[in-house]
């Protein structure tokens, strides 16, 4: 039942942020097709450790596709060739025997490499800190059912809120733009009455921060949405544009 394959890996190795990186090639045999991509990398690392070499550094944590920690640009796709999954949910059955798999870190001016395949994604946190919230303090809230919210709006807000902040959108974008990430948060709050109160302030602050951090300009290619592991829709970007233009016109 258990099928195995032999593969060749071309992995980006880079000792530190300032060091020069290069691809290294490794061969792995008898990888079970039932194992996940990261489990395959675990096998590679075990092998490297047994040869007293430094293992490949890569980000990962929950390994169930929700924390957004894992990254990797695999064979030209963020999170690999499968759709609607993160790298940790990608399984080796998506690859064939003898295949060469190229693994690169996210490449974007705003996501500098830390080591090997690890990148610094704090830029996304900074965008959130600029305005990705509803300004309420803890305590003294009205009853949760005090404001009815149309199911459709709540569901749409949930779809936008499902963003895991992994950075695949900016990594996939030929312009290095973080628009889908910003749009998802702006949309979630713009769709809910609680968030509408400061919607104009929020969209200006978040977008301003995104531009300041050196992300690119969106040109609506849709690569972000096509690669998003959570299938966040491109229409959120239209909403972000709308919110931003309205906010600016009102100024």
């Amino acid at each position: 039942m258990d099928k195995t394959i032999n593969i060749k890996l071309k992995v980006w190795r880079q000792a530190g942020p300032k060091a020069k990186g290069a691809f290294e090639t490794y061969e792995l045999n008898n990888i079970s097709t039932d194992s996940s991509f990261l489990e395959m990398l675990d096998v590679l690392n075990e092998k490297l450790i047994s040869e007293h070499k430094e293992p490949v550094a890569f980000d990962h944590d929950c390994r169930e596709g929700i924390c957004g920690m894992c990254s990797l640009y695999i064979n030209g796709h963020p999170h690999g060739p499968d759709s609607g999954v993160t790298t940790c949910q990608l399984h080796m059955r998506k690859f064939h025997d003898g295949e060469t798999i190229t693994i690169e870190p996210w490449r974007s001016h705003a996501f500098p490499v830390i080591k090997d395949l690890m990148v610094d994604r704090r830029a996304y946190d900074k965008i959130m800190q600029a305005g990705g919230y509803i300004s309420v303090n803890t305590g003294g809230m009205p009853d949760a059912n005090a404001i009815p919210i149309a199911k459709k709006a709540a569901d749409e807000a949930m779809d936008a809120a499902s963003c895991i902040g992994c950075g695949a959108c900016a990594a996939a974008c030929k312009n290095g733009s973080a628009m889908l990430f910003v749009a998802a948060k702006v949309s979630q709050f713009a769709l809910l009455p609680q968030g509408k109160v400061e919607a104009a302030r929020r969209v200006k602050a978040m977008l301003g921060k995104m531009d300041e951090l050196g992300f690119g300009n969106c040109t609506n290619t849709g690569a972000c949405a096509a690669e998003c592991p959570k299938n966040v829709s491109l229409s959120n970007i239209a909403r972000l544009n709308r919110e931003f233009i309205c906010a600016k016109l009102k100024d």
Binding site: T138, P142, A154, A161, Q194
Partner: peptide, 12 residues
């Protein structure tokens, strides 16, 4: 109450 005020999109 707190989470709804923060914009947590609970099912409705």
């Amino acid at each position: 109450d707190q989470c709804v005020a923060q914009g947590v999109p609970f099912a409705r």
